[in-house]
Amino acid sequence: MEAPQHPPRRRPNVLVTGTPGTGKTTTCEMVALATGMTHIEVGKLVKEKGLHDGFDEEFQSFLIDEDRVVDELEDVLAPGGVIVDHHGCDFFPERWFDLVVVLTCPNDVLYDRLEKRGYSEKKIQENVECEIMQVVLEEAHDSYDHSIVVTLQSSTVDEMEENVNRIEQWVDTFIAQHA
C-alpha cells in the first residue's frame, strides 16, 4: 500500500528516542513549550487509545500494536509541527521525521532514574544493557538517513537545557528554510 500524499511540511516533525529513563518526555515537553510544537508521548497514546495487544505483567508495560499506532498518527503528523517521544523508532515511517534525536546517558545515571521510577531489577538491567549496547541508536541509524539522526547526552539538567536549545534552534532553522 502506498503512503498518502500530503503537501510539503512548513514545520518539522521531530522524533526523540532513547532507552527509557534518558529524558525523552521531559525534553519533548520543554521543546514543545519553546516551539509551539505538539508533543505526542507514544506510550501514553497507546494506553489512552488502546493501541496495544495486552499487558506484559513481567515488564509492567503494554504490548504496543505498531500498525495501529502508525494508523493513528499518519494524519496527525502529515502537516508537521509534532514532536514524538518513544523508546523505539524502527516502526515509524521514515517520511514522518525531519530530525531524529537519540538521547543517551551514563549507565549509573540511567540505573538511578529507573530505580526511582520503581522498575523491577530485571527491567532495569534490560534497559541498562540496551543502553550499553546502544540498541536504540543502532535502530535509529538502521531506520533513518544518517544525516537526520543526532545523538545527544542527557544526564544533567544543564545537558537537557542545552539539548532543548539545540532542538529549538534546529526547528527555527527548518521553519525559516521552508517558509
Rank of each mutant, 00 (worst) to 15 (best):
D56P: 12
D53T: 10
A34M: 04
L33M: 13
T38K: 08
G36I: 07
E41Y: 02
T38E: 07
L63V: 15
E41I: 02
D56S: 08
L33T: 15
L33D: 15
F59S: 12
K47S: 12
G43S: 03
M37H: 07
E57K: 13
H39A: 01
A34E: 12
E58H: 13
G36C: 05
G50Y: 11
L45K: 01
V31R: 00
K49R: 15
G43P: 02
K47N: 09
I40E: 01
F62V: 06
H52M: 06
K49T: 06
H52W: 10
G36P: 10
I40D: 00
H39M: 01
V42A: 04
H52G: 07
Q60R: 15
E58Q: 15
L63Q: 14
K49W: 08
K49P: 05
G36A: 09
G36K: 06
G54K: 09
V42M: 03
L33C: 12
K44Y: 06
G43A: 01
L63H: 09
K44H: 09
G36L: 07
V31S: 00
G54I: 08
E58M: 12
T35Y: 03
E48F: 03
T38V: 08
Q60M: 14
H39E: 00
A32I: 01
L51S: 07
K49C: 10
E57A: 14
